[in-house]
């Protein structure tokens, strides 16, 4: 399409936004409200994810091998471990290294008797890509021959993982609600502009405008409303988050719980992309829905 045609269609779309100020504003407000609720769970989810990831980095699964395992068998176990889905990294800990690290934690005296006769088994330390895969990976590891036993994360971690899962589900449900409500709202707003401009549309049809040409300004209108709602929401989420971040971080509670919040600037890009994408997508779908019925005439 030619530039003047594109700029014409955009101008018309922008005009549409101002044609029904009341309905534009009310749909903006409703979209912002739903986006904010989504944003609330989104940032909580992001923080829990970050926390879980940190634990996942620190915590691994310790895989102990049977004492009689030969070097080649040990090597074989290492290879098989790496093949399991969800395993990010595998590190071999020989009997000697195991003893050494035990010495560090327990002290020389207790270890002393064992130095001559090291009964500690050789082991692997397995790091996961995603803590949620913990259970499945453990099951897979136990299938591998020459594995004696595994030692894994504590119940608290299991609970945090469950919490993270719950938040994810809630976020997804809210996201779906947000999308459905917003599409309906935008579709309704655009229906009003379509109605206000029906005379123009009928003239366009008589002059031979294609449906896609007629549709464009309304598509632009929907996307503009969606994107503006996205931008406003990013601003509000950013301001609120930064406020609570300042209030919470450094408090005794957070120190005791050993919690560290993500800084907003580290989430900004992601949130901006998610909101703009959502806004534009919802706007486009909303306008497509409201136009489809109209143009079929």
């Amino acid at each position: 399409m030619r530039f003047n045609v594109i700029s014409y269609l955009f101008k018309e779309g922008i005009k549409n936004v101002f044609k029904n100020k009341k309905s534009t504003i009310s749909s903006l407000m409703i979209m912002c409200a739903t986006m904010l609720i989504f944003g609330l769970f989104f940032v909580i989810g992001e923080n829990i994810n970050a926390f879980v990831k940190e634990i996942a980095d620190a915590q691994g699964i310790r895989v102990f091998l049977i004492n009689s395992a030969t070097d080649s068998e040990i090597e074989e176990v290492g290879k098989e471990l790496l093949e399991i889905e969800g395993v990010r990294d595998v590190r071999y800990i020989s009997k000697e290294e195991g003893l050494e690290s035990m010495r560090e934690t327990l002290g020389d005296e207790i270890i002393a008797g064992y130095t001559e006769n090291n009964i500690l088994p050789a082991s692997y330390e397995v790091k996961l890509t995603d803590l949620e895969l913990n259970e499945e990976v453990q099951k897979d590891i136990l299938q591998i021959p020459n594995v004696e036993d595994i030692e894994s994360s504590n119940p608290v971690i299991e609970q945090i993982i469950r919490l993270a899962k719950g938040v994810k589900i809630i976020t997804a449900v809210i996201l779906i609600l947000l999308i459905v409500i917003s599409i309906a709202i935008i579709a309704n707003t655009i229906k009003l502009t379509v109605h206000a401009r029906r005379k123009e549309i009928s003239i366009m049809k008589y002059v031979g405008a294609t449906n896609s040409f007629i549709r464009w300004p309304f598509l632009v209108e929907g996307v503009i409303i969606g994107v503006i709602a996205g931008l406003i929401s990013v601003g509000i989420v950013g301001a609120l988050y930064t406020y609570f971040y300042g209030k919470l971080s450094g408090t005794i509670f957070m120190d005791i719980a050993n919690l560290k919040l993500i800084e907003f600037k580290d989430m900004f890009e992601l949130i901006l992309i998610v909101y703009l994408g959502l806004g534009a997508g919802i706007g486009a779908i909303g306008s497509a829905i409201s136009m489809r019925k109209y143009l079929d005439v």
């Binding site: 030619r2 003047n4 045609v5 014409y8 003239i203 366009m204 002059v207 031979g208 405008a209 040409f213």
Partner: peptide, 11 residues
């Protein structure tokens, strides 16, 4: 001019 825009005429 509107009728010409619609058929994508050049400026």
């Amino acid at each position: 001019a509107f009728a010409m825009y619609i058929v994508k005429a050049t400026p």
